[in-house]
């Protein structure tokens, strides 16, 4: 979460020299206003998210993510040794664990953005919460799919009614429900509906985060088939240094990639300068 938000802040701060005066421009252009349109000047758009410097920064971040992913793939597939007990199936750890970690991070970003929205009522925070939730849902799905593969290879079962597995599916359902609720409340139908959607969504976005510690500590609080954490364990159990290096590299690659996707999607969801909110995700033009 911190990384995502810090990264975002650093981008906005660095480009603070360019001011996009959205509020007055909007009223001047004669855009159709509804009761839901935000009237305060300068709050509808994420400051400076659409300018060229920010786009260039996003591209650099994309290249960094690509480089880290390549290095992580090499480390995980070629350099790290196979596990003594699990064999090559253990290499799924280098995808499964970072996917789960990045999903936690995304849901933490939903929490922070929802709190930001509740404090400021600024639609920028609402969009951040939405994009983070979309990322989190995708990553949780990926985590479950990869975990099923790993489980089949090592436990001998795709699925088990185990506290970790069940709570992770609950987490997925909660945030999928969050996104569904946003649609039901009227997001993305051409009418700026931020305030109708944002308030209830932010409450759900804050409450939903309670599931994250439940998922993470499920293997400690209850009896589980799932193994407990290794890297995040208080007394770190033995892990081969090369395996740990591959895992950390992959964690960095996943985090960077998720941050890059977050910023791209956020830029794509920016309201157009005319004042209308895009009905669906517009094609993210490469220069943005």
């Amino acid at each position: 979460m911190l990384l995502v938000l810090l990264r975002f802040n650093s981008l906005t701060v660095r480009h603070s020299g360019i001011i996009v005066g959205v509020g007055p421009a909007q009223s001047g252009s004669g855009a159709v206003r509804t009761a839901d349109t935000d009237d305060r000047p300068g709050v509808a758009r994420t400051p400076r998210a659409g300018d060229r410097r920010a786009a260039a920064d996003r591209r650099s971040l994309g290249w960094l993510a690509g480089g880290l992913a390549t290095a992580a793939a090499a480390a995980g597939l070629l350099i790290a040794p196979p596990d003594a007990v699990q064999g090559d199936a253990q290499r799924l750890m280098y995808l499964h664990v970072p996917a789960a970690w990045t999903a936690y991070l995304a849901f933490a970003a939903v929490l922070a953005s929802s709190l930001g929205y509740l404090a400021t009522r600024d639609p920028c925070w609402d969009r951040r919460a939405r994009v983070a939730a979309e990322l989190g849902v995708g990553l949780t799905t990926l985590t479950i799919a990869l975990g099923a593969l790993w489980g089949r290879a090592v436990w001998g079962a795709w699925w088990a009614w185990d506290p970790r597995l069940v709570s992770t599916v609950l987490l997925l359902l909660a945030y999928a429900g969050y996104l569904a609720a946003r649609r039901v409340l009227g997001e993305g139908r051409g009418v700026p509906a931020t305030h109708r959607v944002g308030g209830p969504a932010a409450v759900v976005g804050v409450a939903g985060f309670a599931l994250v510690p439940l998922v993470h500590f499920s293997v400690v609080w209850w009896r589980s088939l799932h193994q407990p954490a290794t890297i995040l364990a208080p007394d770190r159990p033995p892990i081969d240094p090369l395996m740990a290096a591959a895992l950390l590299l992959s964690l960095a690659a996943f985090t960077t990639t998720a941050t890059w996707l977050f910023l791209r999607r956020l830029a794509a969801l920016e309201p157009t300068p005319g004042g209308s909110v895009p009905t669906a995700a517009p094609n993210p033009v490469e220069t943005r």
Partner: peptide, 16 residues
């Protein structure tokens, strides 16, 4: 009728 193998959170190469 079903065996599930548990594995711990320790990872080491074969032969270590």
């Amino acid at each position: 009728d079903q065996v599930l193998v548990r594995h711990d959170n320790e990872y080491r190469p074969a032969g270590a």
